[in-house]
Design a protein around this nucleic acid. Structure first.
Lengths: 353, 353
DNA sequence: ATTAGCACTTTCTTGAGATGAGTGCTAATA
DNA sequence: TATTAGCACTCATCTCAAGAAAGTGCTAAT
């Protein structure tokens, strides 16, 4: 004991053992013991040696023992190390690639909403986990067209089309009746003024002009700004497509009533999940959250693998997969990555110019 | 034996016992035996007598025994008899009534879609079962307004607003570029022609005029019919709002992996469930499907309680609750009934005139 | 017609081995 | 000095038997 300076050192053989344990646990979902591992490893190591190494790994916090005997399982820290340095992402199997490419064949009249939902569904089916897709953020979506349609005396339907292909409907009340003619003038004005601006930008500009131009309003401008304000108000919650919640119930580990309940509760709080995804929006490539790294209650026995999708101009939203921490990262990572790329491509082609 | 003519007769006491068993089973979800029941029943009957009656009820197909001993449970037939003749629907508890009334306070700018989804969510929360709400059938929905918006050279956004408040967006391709001016003329024409007609009616009329007027088309009419055909085509699947799928997992009986899996599979096939709901559209009041009466695979250990909602003119769609066959019908029936009425009221107020 | 009594079933629970996989430690080995 | 064999020990799981609880059908008494 006194000979060592600061706990066991982390050499190559330790890596091998750790990788072996994680691989085995990912495959079989069962604690792995020294004897079993000794048989599986390519390098010849006796169970006793492996036990020593395992003991060191436990001390370093990479392994735990569910029971005093009965093998060890990787900790979240181990998975983190695994995905950061050990894992080499697999080649994407061709049948999966083909499957995903169908998404991009959906045809140009498919609404973006359907495209997103389909992506979510396909990805959930392929991974057999829970799949998430956020709709393009209205923050960055640029205005393609806005239109007002009078549907009754004091109700106006607002149609808002963004460059990224999102179509939003909204009904607004007006204090007095406005003629359709007049509405057309206003929408023409707004289109002219704000086309290609991002929605959040537009909101700001409208607010600003309400303050600045307060006195020198003419009738039209006043109405335009007033309607515009209502029309662009971000009062609808952002949309999150979620599919395959039931897949997780197939997982033994997560099925005991307590975890299951927690999970389902977590899924009901879409806003919490959405905010995690939003936090990844500036990151590039695939990002992974393992176990306790997820702050959301109920997801702490799960891992989340996310990636962003984008058009030529902006990062629009993100996709994600939630599965057990012992998911097969080697497979999932390239699948998520590729899906994001396919979706980016599809949504770019969809965009209106 | 020889004395009785055709099996046991069904007298009042038998009814009492049957009701007692069902009530008890609904409460505790556990097979009920003669001794237990004897203690619970108001009328004094010895366990032995009850055993005799139970034996008769078994013979008549109202009870089964999961094991040779260990009490009996009601069959689907028993539940059917129960809801048909024994059950007296409870008064709606006031806290539930209050809860539901909030739905009608959602304000007139709430899109109908949000109203439906909210209804589904609230009902799922109240019942702790799965709740379904179908969107108003396009068959019966009457046209309020149609509008074409050109969003790129060969793409047109169709906005279709129905009297019942549904707003549908759709993108159609056109072979040649059409000016917005021209589109306005066409939508004016279509609005004039078809306002207040039901969508299915419109579809028919368009098809008819395509055949009849084949030669004497003028340019405008031809385009109007062509665009109208695409715009009114029923190519989007009808929408079904489903909430609370996870609630069923709380139910012991349905949680074993097999049933759970089947259930989840059933929920994935929304179209099948939708068609059940559609079949109830001409029925009045609350309708109940018990266990094997559900033809849909996977729902055969569940009961479905449905009711329709409507506006002044038409039955629009239906709502439903799916729970275990041993659900508390006395409570659920009035809840579903009342919810349908609230929804009818809310949606009528929403309608555009 | 109803009920008490009784023998018999069946499930569930409990506790006592037996089994198997794994562990830590020590001493022997290369 | 690093590795390995050996050994005693731990723990979860399986099996089995025995007993308790609850229920059933049948028969005979009321």
């Amino acid at each position: 004991m006194g000979a060592r300076k600061q706990g066991p050192e982390f050499d190559e053989r330790m890596q091998m053992v750790l990788r072996g344990i994680i691989d085995s646990y990912i495959d079989h979902s069962e604690p792995v013991g020294s004897r079993t591992l000794s048989r599986q490893l390519e390098v010849q190591l006796s169970p006793a040696t492996i036990r020593n190494i395992m003991s060191d790994l436990s001390e370093l916090g990479f392994l735990t023992q569910p029971h005093t005997s009965g093998g060890r399982i990787p900790t979240d820290k181990a998975y983190r190390y695994y995905v950061d340095t050990l894992v080499v992402a697999n080649q994407l199997p061709s049948h999966i690639e083909r499957h995903l490419q169908e998404l991009s064949l959906l045809g140009s009249t498919t609404p973006v909403e359907a495209l997103l939902q389909n992506t979510s569904r396909v990805l959930a089916g392929l991974t057999q986990f829970v799949c998430l897709v956020t709709a393009p953020k209205s923050e960055v979506s640029r205005l393609q067209r806005i239109e007002f349609i009078k549907i009754s005396a004091r109700k106006i339907l607002v149609i808002l089309v963004t460059k990224s292909g999102i179509i939003r409907n909204k009904i607004i009340d007006t204090p007095e009746e406005l003629a359709q003619e007049f509405l057309n003038t206003i929408s023409a004005f707004l289109n002219d003024q704000f086309r290609n601006h991002s929605l959040s930008q537009i909101r700001e500009e409208i607010l600003r002009s309400m303050v600045e131009d307060k006195e020198r309003y003419d009738q039209l401008l006043a109405q335009a700004v007033r309607l515009g304000k209502k029309a662009f108000e971000a009062d609808q919650p952002e949309v999150l497509y979620m599919e395959g919640q039931f897949n997780l119930l197939k997982n033994e580990r997560l099925r005991d009533s307590q975890s299951a309940q927690q999970l389902m509760d977590a899924f009901e709080h879409k806003s919490a999940i959405m905010s995690i995804l939003d936090d990844t929006l500036n990151a590039d490539g695939v990002k992974i959250f393992i176990g306790i790294e997820n702050e959301t209650e109920g997801l702490q026995e799960c891992s989340l693998v996310t990636a962003n999708y984008q058009n030529e101009n902006n990062i629009l939203g993100s996709i994600g997969v939630i599965g057990p921490t012992s998911m097969n990262y080697q497979q999932i990572i390239p699948v998520v990555d590729y899906t994001a790329k396919i979706l980016s491509k599809a949504i770019s082609e969809q965009a209106y110019d």
